[in-house]
């Protein structure tokens, strides 16, 4: 496929997604899209609805209404298995690891490798995990202990390995660097760039505006469940985006007084 055709059909289109909890509209008619080889950052304050929005794509939560298209085709995602079948992998903010199980067990959870007798092939899973870790986090070698006893960075590596191992086409990262130190954060940044170059589309949820500007191609801002707007990173400044997050207006619509208040 040429660059042209890729650009014509988005990898993911989410249209007019709505999710309500009781009477609260956590996500209120948000539309976002994602192209292959692109990083779209979803930003917004706490409780803006970023995570809820993205959960409708990862299958963790069902949307009340709205439409999801993958490669231009309408799809229904009722559970995480549906999402995985469509090539959507998610790295959750909570990491979603079974604390009592070791790294290979977690990495292959739900997709265990089996021996020819149908039993778990622990050695093969350990070996595969070692290969992935050699790339992601070479210092992490004590794979056979329960993840509960691993460091934050190691646990994050397991969660990331779980997502990148399966040739995903779409990866959702919910605060992938929240628990990491500077060196590990740089590592995750490198990984995102590498995945991007492989043509994978990435939704990145982040609080860190510097990370967002460093990694994202486009930035979608949500406020109180509504989409403020989506901008190209190259067209805006960090201040513009902060304005969108806090005031909820596109850069051009922000008045002089509002701009001054923002810096007050």
């Amino acid at each position: 496929m040429t660059q042209e055709t890729i650009q014509q059909t988005p990898l993911v289109e989410m249209k007019d997604i709505r999710v309500a909890f009781g009477g609260v509209h956590a996500v209120d008619g948000v539309s976002v899209d994602l192209y292959a080889g692109e990083v779209v950052a979803l930003v917004g304050g706490n409780g803006a609805g970023k995570t809820t929005l993205i959960k409708t794509l990862s299958g963790a939560h069902k949307a009340d209404s709205g439409q999801i298209k993958i490669d231009g085709q309408d799809v229904t995602i009722d559970n995480p298995r549906d999402a995985k079948a469509l090539g959507i992998e998610t790295i959750y903010q909570t990491l979603a690891l079974a604390e009592n199980i070791d790294a290979p067990g977690n990495m292959f959870l739900g997709r265990e490798l089996k021996t020819r007798w149908g039993t778990l092939d622990d050695s093969a899973m350990e070996s595969e995990t070692r290969k992935v870790m050699a790339r992601l986090n070479p210092k992490f070698t004590n794979l056979k202990v329960p993840v509960a006893s691993l460091s934050g960075g190691q646990r994050q590596s397991v969660a990331i390995a779980k997502a990148v191992y399966y040739n995903a086409r779409i990866i959702i990262m919910d605060e992938p660097t929240a628990a990491l130190g500077p060196a590990e954060t740089t590592q995750v940044g490198e990984l995102i760039k590498q995945l991007k170059s492989e043509g994978i589309g990435i939704f990145l949820i982040s609080h860190d505006i510097h990370d967002v500007f460093d990694l994202a191609d486009r930035i979608s801002v949500v406020l109180q469940g509504k989409l403020v707007g989506t901008v190209d990173k190259d067209d805006v400044t960090m201040d513009d985006v902060l304005g969108m997050i806090i005031i909820g207006k596109l850069p051009d619509d922000v008045t002089q007084t509002e701009r001054e208040q923002l810096h007050g």
């Binding site: 990862s58 963790a60 559970n79 995480p80 298995r81 995985k84 998610t90 959750y92 909570t94 990491l95 979603a96 690891l97 079974a98 604390e99 009592n100 199980i101 977690n106 959870l109 739900g110 997709r111 779980k162």
Partner: peptide
Amino acid sequence: GNPEAAELAG
């Protein structure tokens, strides 16, 4: 170990 993680893992 983590019912939610198991569910999310499919």
